[in-house]
Simulated assay, not measured.
Amino acid sequence: MNRHDDRPPRLLTLLRVKGIHAPEKLKVREILIADGRIAALGEDLDVPVHWPVHRVEAQDLIAVPAFIDQHVHVTGGGGEGGFGSRCPGIGAQEIAAMGIGTVVGVLGTDCISRSPADLLAAVRGLKSEGIAAYMYTGAYRVPPPTLTGDIQRDLAWIPEVIGLGEIAISDHRSSQPRQDELERLVSEARVGAMLAGKRGICHFHLGDGKRGLEPLRRLLSETEMPAEQIIPTHVNRHSALLEEAVDYALSFEACIDVTAFEIPGDGLSAFDAVAHLLEQGVPAERITLSSDCNGSLPEFDQRGNYTGMRVARNTALISDWQRLVQEHVLPLDTALGLISGNVARVLGLHHCKGRLAVGFDADITLLDETLQPRQTFVAGRRIHGGE
């Protein structure tokens, strides 16, 4: 707004849509937003005409909770092939164009030329552009790099830090941590999170090594750590690992994260993986989807030598999710949990995100009839689409 414009600012937004899935379908079509949160849901909401209201007419679109991507290389991943193989970072528009309102930033293999401080700066940059952004402290390696020199202090004193990760296991690029080292990391994250009132999950990168999920099975079998503290990702890297994930989820009532691999051959597609998990009896509420976008998709020969790389994007996350609904694997209300409500619960953000309800953050994605995101609002601010 022009600084010389003496008109009052538009402090409220009234959003009129075709329908609302909160995720359950509501019998109302209007959302009133105030101070970044949902103030009311209703039909023909009575807002005085003299109030400073911005009215958004989107009566051909349906409103759903904005998507949450818990695994994003916001500074770029890669580096396995030398300095020329470092992947680029990602911006707010590229995120919001896919209907994503919240991201969690991760470091990967390279925590030498990139650091938790770089990651925090990128996260705060996305926040300044309107995205709700968080991060994990740490990286592939053990002991993990941190901001303050201590996992507990990072969780306690840095608001954006909501967990530890991505710690690599069963991968030739990991630091081959011992079991007692993994146990210490999870306990450190748990106590630090308790002090800060956070969930403090430990986000584990799964490679294609023969140990698979065994280190995490031992964590849950041999310690007092709750399953909700430990989240394995990339569990659809290959069929045998996915079968392990089925048993892991059912045995420990645990949540697992499926990666939306973009290129055939990188692993089972998120669509195929979710369909299989459901067929094997894993409840939908224990499954989440993430993109791994702007991370590297490196290729290695049988001896572990680097042969090439591609850069992951977040488009497969949305397209595979759409297929789950369009091919009737899951109804829309349940499928939304995989990229919104379930993720919010896993991250400990379920008190304010992952649902359209009074008092929750006004993080809203508007979908067309093909379930394609057309507009994205975060804290009531339109970040993508519209006028």
Rank of each mutant, 00 (worst) to 15 (best):
L45E: 07
D35T: 11
Q70F: 03
V74H: 05
S85Y: 03
F67S: 02
S85W: 02
D118R: 02
D44P: 11
A58Q: 05
A66M: 02
G76D: 09
D118T: 03
A40N: 05
L107Q: 07
G36T: 09
D118K: 02
T137A: 00
D44Q: 14
L155C: 00
P65Y: 09
T75F: 11
A139G: 09
G108T: 11
A121Y: 13
D69N: 05
Y140N: 09
G108R: 13
A122P: 14
G91V: 02
S115N: 12
Q70W: 05
C111P: 11
M135H: 14
P65K: 03
A63E: 06
E129A: 14
T137C: 01
V106I: 14
D150T: 11
L147P: 00
V103W: 13
Y134W: 07
C87G: 01
G77K: 01
D154K: 00
A66D: 01
Q152K: 15
A156C: 12
L147I: 10
W51G: 09
Q93W: 12
P145G: 06
I68Y: 00
Q70D: 11
T102K: 00
Y136K: 06
E94S: 04
V49Q: 15
H50T: 15
R114Y: 01
V49T: 15
C111M: 15
P143C: 08
E129N: 13
P48G: 08
Y134G: 10
I112W: 10
F67E: 08
L61K: 12
L126N: 04
R114G: 10
A97Y: 04
A96T: 06
L155G: 00
Q59Y: 02
G42T: 11
P145M: 10
V47Y: 01
L126A: 03
T75P: 08
H54P: 00
Y136E: 05
A92K: 03
V103M: 05
A39P: 09
A63C: 01
A132T: 13
L45H: 07
L155A: 00
A39E: 14
T148N: 12
P65T: 08
V103A: 07
L120D: 06
T146V: 10
F83R: 15
G125R: 10
Q70K: 04
V74F: 01
P48T: 12
R114S: 14
P88W: 00
S113M: 12
A139T: 05
I151M: 10
S115R: 15
L45G: 08
